[in-house]
Design a protein around this nucleic acid. Structure first.
Lengths: 325, 325
DNA sequence: TTGAAAGCGCTAACAG
DNA sequence: CTGTTAGCGCTTTCAA
C-alpha cells in the first residue's frame, strides 16, 4: 500500500508537506506542490481514509436509518443523498427491518465516530433509547417530536391541512360519505388525519364512520382486509381516502381488476404524489416529499456548522387525476 | 470520548486485555472478562471504528455504485443490502449521476480502504479505468464482461432467452407483427434482445421492423418519442415488447389514458417483473432480479474469503397479466 | 492469563 | 515555507 511516507520519500519532502498539499492547508511553494503532486500521480496514491478519520474525528458520512426501503422512504432518501453528496458527504444506509438491536448498532456508529449525523426515517426503539445518542452527533427524523426535551430535529409535516384539502375537494364534487384508510394507530400522522376527518364531519354535519376496521392498514395483507370490509358494507361510500400512494395503488389495482369504475362508482385518493400516482392516474396530495428529504440533510449540515442552509417550506397541493371527479 | 484506555483504567487491566474482551480473541479469564464488560457497560463504551479499521485494514463495508436510483436498480440494491447486512457488512451508496469523476471518487475508496468491495451496478467510466481498482478489492458488476482479461465478476444475465420467451408466447396467441422498444444501443442486453428478435423473425419467416426509431429509449422523453413514432405508423403492430417495466408502465399509462384497449387492440409486455407490473396488471418477464442482487453480494463475500456462498441460478419466467392474450 | 510496547497512516502544533 | 514530533484509538506480537 502506498502511504504518505512513500510520497514524501519520492518527492524528497516531509510527510507534513505532503499532507499540506493533499489538504490544501498551510503554505506550500508552488514548486514543491508540483513535485508532490507528480509523486502522488506517479505512485497512484490515495490517502487512507481511516487514518484521516481517526485523526480528524469526523467522517463526512451520514447514516440513514429506516425500517424498510419502500417507495415513500426512497422518495426521501434519493434527494437526501444527492444533497449530501453535493456537500461532499457520503451516505450509509441502515435497514433495521424493525429489529431494535440493528437500530442500536447503527446508532452506535454515531458514537464510534463512523457517522457524523443520522437521518432517522423510521425508528424502532423508544425515544428514551435514541435520545442519548444526540450527544454524539445530530439526529434528524421524520417523526413528530412532541417532547421538546429531546434534542432531535424533525422534518415532520402535519398532514391535517393536506387531508382537509382532499375532503373539501371531494365534498365540492358531490361526495357525501367517506372511508378513511389509515396507517399506524400510534403515528402522529394518523391522529392528525383522524382529527381532520372528525373536524370536517362536524363542519358539514355528517356522521363519521367507524374508524376501527380501517386503522393500521400498513401492509398489503391488511389492505386486503380493509377491502373486504368495504365489500361487506351494504351502503358503499362515495370516496376512499388513503394515507399513502402505496395503499391507494393497491386498492385501485384491485378495483380495476374487478372493473369497478373510478370515479363514477367511487373516488379514491392517495397521498405523497409519488410516480405511481401519475402512472396509475390517480388523485394524490403533493407536499414536496423530495424537499423534505433535502431539508433533513440541511438540518444535519446546519447542526454540523456547515451551513447555514435555509429550509424550504413544504406546501400541500392536491393533484387531481382520474380517480376523482 | 470514552476510549479503550478509560475502560482499562476503570477495570484495572491493560488496554490489551480490554481489546481481547471486545474481540473475543486470546485468553481472558472469565473473571476479568466480567469486570471488563461491566466497565464497558458502565461507561457506555463503543470502540472507535476508525482506529479499528486503521489497524485491521478492513471495514466490513461494501460500496454500491450506480448512476441512478430508479426502480430496477433499487430492486437489486435492497436484497444486496439485506444479504450484506446478514453477513455483518454495511453498505454505502454512491450515486454518480453519470459523472465519471464521482465514480472515480467512489472507486478510490476501495483503494483508501474505506470499502472492502464494490457492487458496480451502472458504470460511467471505461473498463480500462475501472479495472486497475480490482487490485484493491473485489468488484462485481451487472454488466456483461466480455473481456476475460478483466478481473471483474458479473451477475449479468443474458436476456436472449427471456426475450424469446415473450416472442414465442405472443406468436402462440396470434400476434404477427411486433415493435421492440429497446434500451441503450451500447448495452449487451439490447444487442442480445435484437438478436433474439432477428432470430425469431427468421424462424417464423417474418420481416423485422426498423429498429432505429425504437433504440435508446432510456428515459421518459424518449419513450414519448417512441410512442409518437408508433402513432405515425399506418399499420399498427400486434404487440409492443419493452426492455423494462419502467418503459412499459409509461406506455401503458399513456395507452390507458387514451383508452387504447390492451390486449384487444395491442399487446404490451414489460421486463423485470417489478411490483409495478402487478399493480398495473401488465405482462412481464421475471428473472429473480432480487436473487441477482443477492448473488452480487455472494460473489463479493466469496472473493473476500467469507464464503463459500453458492450462487443461485436465475431463471426466466413469463408472468402473464392483463396486457397480453 | 496478562501487560508493555510498537505501530497502522495521517494531521497539526511548534520550531525553525 | 518546511520539517520534527506527538499522538488519534486500537490490535497484536512478544515477553513475563
Amino acid at each position: 500500500m502506498v502511504t504518505i511516507n512513500d510520497i514524501a520519500k519520492q518527492a524528497g519532502v516531509s510527510a507534513a508537506t505532503v499532507s499540506r498539499v493533499i489538504n490544501n492547508s498551510g503554505y506550500v511553494s508552488a514548486e514543491t506542490r508540483q513535485i508532490v503532486n507528480r509523486a502522488i500521480a506517479d505512485l497512484n496514491y490515495v490517502p487512507n481514509r481511516h487514518a484521516q478519520n481517526l485523526r480528524r474525528g469526523a467522517t463526512r458520512n451520514f447514516g440513514i436509518i429506516t425500517s424498510s426501503l419502500e417507495q415513500p422512504v426512497l422518495a426521501r432518501i434519493e434527494p437526501f443523498m444527492q444533497f449530501a453528496n453535493d456537500a461532499n458527504y457520503t451516505t450509509t444506509l441502515f435497514n433495521t427491518y424493525r429489529d431494535p438491536q440493528r437500530e442500536i448498532e447503527a446508532l452506535d456508529r454515531l458514537k464510534s465516530k463512523e457517522l457524523d449525523g443520522i437521518f432517522l426515517i423510521y425508528r424502532t426503539n423508544e425515544w428514551s433509547v435514541i435520545e442519548p445518542y444526540t450527544q454524539f452527533g445530530p439526529i434528524v427524523t421524520l417523526h413528530n417530536i412532541q417532547r421538546d426535551d429531546l434534542d432531535i430535529q424533525s422534518v415532520f409535516i402535519d398532514h391535517y391541512e393536506g387531508y382537509k384539502l382532499i375532503l373539501e375537494d371531494l365534498w365540492q364534487n358531490g361526495a357525501r360519505s367517506f372511508i378513511n384508510i389509515l396507517g399506524s394507530s400510534r403515528g402522529a400522522n394518523t391522529k392528525r388525519r383522524i382529527k381532520a376527518y372528525f373536524d370536517f364531519c362536524e363542519e358539514h354535519e355528517i356522521p363519521p364512520h367507524d374508524i376501527q376496521p380501517f386503522l393500521d392498514i400498513t401492509n398489503w395483507e391488511r389492505t386486503l382486509k380493509a377491502i373486504n370490509h368495504l365489500d361487506e358494507m351494504t351502503v358503499k361510500p362515495d370516496a376512499i381516502i388513503t394515507h399513502s400512494d402505496q395503499v391507494a395503488s393497491f386498492i385501485i389495482s384491485q378495483f380495476r381488476k374487478r372493473d369497478i369504475k373510478m370515479p363514477e362508482e367511487i373516488s379514491v385518493v392517495g397521498f405523497d404524489n409519488l410516480m405511481i400516482s401519475d402512472l396509475m392516474n390517480f388523485t394524490s396530495v403533493d407536499y414536496s416529499i423530495k424537499e423534505q428529504g433535502r431539508n433533513a440533510c440541511r438540518l444535519l449540515l446546519n447542526e454540523l456548522g456547515a451551513g447555514p442552509y435555509e429550509l424550504m417550506p413544504l406546501r400541500f397541493t392536491l393533484i387531481k387525476r382520474g380517480t376523482t371527479k
